[in-house]
């Protein structure tokens, strides 16, 4: 597993995810990274990586929408200028 810190230096996070509980892909996986988004600027996230935790919140067992909401809220909150992703290499 690898810890990646993404700085919120763009208006968008810029990732697309698939997967979640009760699907063929039980943990959310990054399927694309948009240029110019914070994730792309960070340079350490890769398409195909599976996300285990977001800011210390485990995503195991969460439905897709729930996992997406957690990531969206982590990006939206202004309390912190970054998001920590615990990822598993692809």
């Amino acid at each position: 597993a690898v810890l990646v810190r993404v700085l919120k230096n763009s208006n968008t996070l810029g990732i697309a995810i698939e997967g979640g509980g009760s699907t063929r892909q039980p943990l959310p996986r990054i399927v694309s990274i948009q240029k110019g988004g914070s994730a792309h600027n960070c340079g350490q996230l890769r398409t195909g990586q599976v996300i285990l935790e977001v800011d210390g919140i485990p995503l195991q067992g969460r439905e897709h929408k729930d996992a997406a909401r957690i990531i969206a809220e982590a990006f939206k909150t202004k309390e912190k200028g970054h998001i920590d992703f615990l990822g598993k290499d692809y």
Binding site: A16, E18, T23, R24, Q25, V31, Q34, K65, A68, A72
Partner: peptide, 16 residues
């Protein structure tokens, strides 16, 4: 177990 996995649906995709 393998058959069960194959019956799981694909996931939707969300842009964040």
């Amino acid at each position: 177990v393998r058959e069960k996995r194959l019956t799981l649906p694909p996931s939707e995709i969300t842009m964040l």
